[in-house]
């Protein structure tokens, strides 16, 4: 078994044992539920503001997963073993991100369809919303790896991660929310795919560089 596959399987197993997508999904749906409670059930208003707010909720749900992402590995010595692996740390980071996306990102993307529809997005747009959220969560996780890695040694780093990562979330939010709102969908989705690819390429490399420093 390759180091990539071993890492991917192990991370999935650990995420699953920690409750899987249950908590982030619940958080996502709960945050979405607060939107009509805050704005009132006015359909016209919701139809405009609702779908973009689904994106905010998805971003926050990913953000909430990041704090412990590397902290546990740093504290219990797992990071040292990753450094001694026959695969480069960058690849292991990619495997970790991929596992997080499968366990959390994809379920969030799928749950995004009913959430957006509940917030008065047209039903025929649901498929596009799922695709865009799948790309968007990949971008969030990619840049999130960097934020989690540079703050791994900081106790109670949750607020710090948010401060660091939120500016990096800006591009995918912009294009993702455009898809959800049905504006210029074709262009938005291709740029969103670009964001996801870029984050998947840069995130693991920068995270690995930061974690090598953290292990010193």
């Amino acid at each position: 078994m390759s180091a990539f596959r071993a890492t991917f399987q192990r991370e999935l197993l650990l995420l699953w044992a920690g409750g899987g997508a249950l908590a982030p999904l619940g958080y996502f749906l709960g945050a979405t539920m607060l939107v009509p409670l805050a704005m009132g059930p006015d359909r016209a208003l919701l139809a405009v503001a609702g779908p973009p707010l689904v994106w905010i909720a998805a971003a926050l749900a990913v953000l909430a997963m990041l704090e412990r992402l590397f902290q546990a590995d740093l504290e219990d010595g797992s990071l040292d073993q990753m450094l001694l692996s026959r695969a480069p740390l960058e690849l292991i980071m990619f495997a970790k991100g991929a596992a997080l996306w499968c366990a959390i990102g994809l379920p969030l993307a799928i749950a995004g369809a009913p959430a957006a529809i509940a917030l008065q997005a047209p039903v025929e747009r649901a498929a596009m919303i799922v695709v865009s959220l799948a790309l968007g969560t990949a971008a969030f996780i990619g840049v999130g790896l960097v934020g989690a890695a540079v703050t791994a040694s900081v106790k109670r780093g949750g607020v710090l991660i948010a401060l660091i990562v939120l500016p990096l979330f800006a591009p995918p939010i912009i294009f993702g929310a455009s898809v959800a709102a049905g504006q210029d969908v074709g262009a938005a989705i291709s740029i969103l795919a670009g964001c996801a690819l870029g984050a998947a390429a840069i995130g693991p490399v920068a995270a690995a560089a930061a974690l090598r420093l953290q292990a010193e």
């Binding site: 540079v150 990096l168 800006a170 591009p171 455009s178 920068a206 420093l213 953290q214």
Partner: peptide
């Protein structure tokens, strides 16, 4: 660590500029 963050930010900021203009 801050240097790594600074470089990532340097990649991000032009993308933000572009996306915000588009938006």
């Amino acid at each position: 660590l801050a240097a790594i963050l600074c470089l990532v930010g340097a990649i991000n900021l032009p993308i933000v500029k572009f996306s915000v203009d588009w938006w």
